[in-house]
């Protein structure tokens, strides 16, 4: 990289001694470095240790080896329920969210008038959707006497208690998350604008149908952006907390017991810090495996125009 060579020439070499540069560099990144060591690496090591202990915050931790992990996998049906719910949530919401985001982005990728206003309109839910206000309201909107049932009854559909029904509670949360497709939409839109129009013109001259153009041009050209959105949304999905905690409180009958909610319950309701730490490490492992999987497969489906364009 020429950039690095530039930095080297300008910062060190004839101009400044390397130790001086080191000192200056570390001074600048000191805030982050302190945070990284003290609030991330340190706590992570501590948490790995706690995961092998029995610890309730009041008495000192006692070493119990792999017991927390063994218990979790063999003796804790709520752990498996949380895994199941979280997977359904992630695999239900992420593809839907990205599909919506791409569809709407393609609608907005035009020079028609009013698109700026539309983009704002469609983005507003994403600005507010994560807030407690919307979570509290969502519960009522989908409540037995809420607006959704009122609208459905116009079409003769009997009212459902969305939030408290074991069959619909998770779907209600998925709808809330999919509704906030604004950020991936904006990223897709920027990606679509970067695709050269000549590609489509050439394809049209060759008689390619719009569907064909979509599969052969849009998807490959957009694949780095799809990749980015996929990684970010998947991780966010595994971390989801507020929706379940506020709207369904994990219920009914643990049908919406998100992993993060279960972890919170173990740590801050039961003060079982050792077990909760073990849960946290399993979550990290799951996220790591998924990210690695997406990265590994990326080579076969993500197309980079130039090697430099990473």
């Amino acid at each position: 990289m020429s950039e690095q060579a530039d930095v080297a020439k300008y910062n060190s070499g004839k101009l400044q001694k390397q130790w001086k540069v080191d000192l200056i560099g570390f001074a600048f990144i000191a805030p982050w470095l302190i945070g990284f060591l003290g609030f991330i690496i340190g706590p992570m090591i501590a948490s790995l240790y706690f995961s092998f202990t029995n610890y309730d915050l009041l008495s000192p931790p006692t070493w119990i080896g792999l017991d927390n992990y063994i218990n979790m996998f063999t003796n804790d049906s709520r752990f498996w329920q949380a895994i199941k719910v979280t997977f359904i949530f992630v695999f239900g919401s992420v593809p839907l969210k990205l599909a919506f985001a791409l569809f709407v982005a393609m609608l907005f990728n035009t020079k028609r008038r009013g698109v700026g206003l539309y983009r704002t309109l469609y983005y507003v839910p994403s600005i507010l959707g994560g807030s407690v206000a919307i979570a509290v309201v969502w519960k009522q909107l989908f409540g037995r006497e809420g607006a959704i049932n009122d609208i459905l009854s116009l079409f003769g559909i009997p009212s459902v208690s969305w939030v408290t029904s074991p069959d619909f509670a998770l779907s209600t949360l998925i709808i809330l998350v999919v509704w906030q497709f604004g950020s991936p939409m904006l990223i897709f839109l920027a990606g679509l604008k970067a695709i050269p129009a000549e590609l489509y013109e050439a394809a049209a001259v060759d008689g390619a149908s719009p569907l064909h153009q979509f599969i052969k041009i849009t998807i490959p050209m957009l694949s780095p952006v799809i990749f980015f959105n996929l990684v970010m949304q998947t991780i966010q999905g595994f971390m989801a907390f507020t929706q379940s905690f506020l709207i369904t409180e994990g219920g009914p009958m643990d049908r919406t017991l998100f992993y993060a909610v279960y972890l919170y319950e173990k740590a801050f309701a039961h003060f079982d810090m050792g077990y909760a730490s073990a849960l946290a490490w399993i979550l990290l492992l799951i996220c790591g495996i998924f990210t690695a999987f997406i990265f590994r497969t990326a080579k076969s489906w993500v197309y980079y125009e130039s090697e430099g364009g990473k």
């Binding site: 991330i40 595994f238 810090m273 979550l283």
Partner: peptide, 10 residues
């Protein structure tokens, strides 16, 4: 890419 929950408890 680190989930917030991992550092939450420690």
């Amino acid at each position: 890419m680190l989930p917030q929950q991992v550092t939450l408890i420690p």
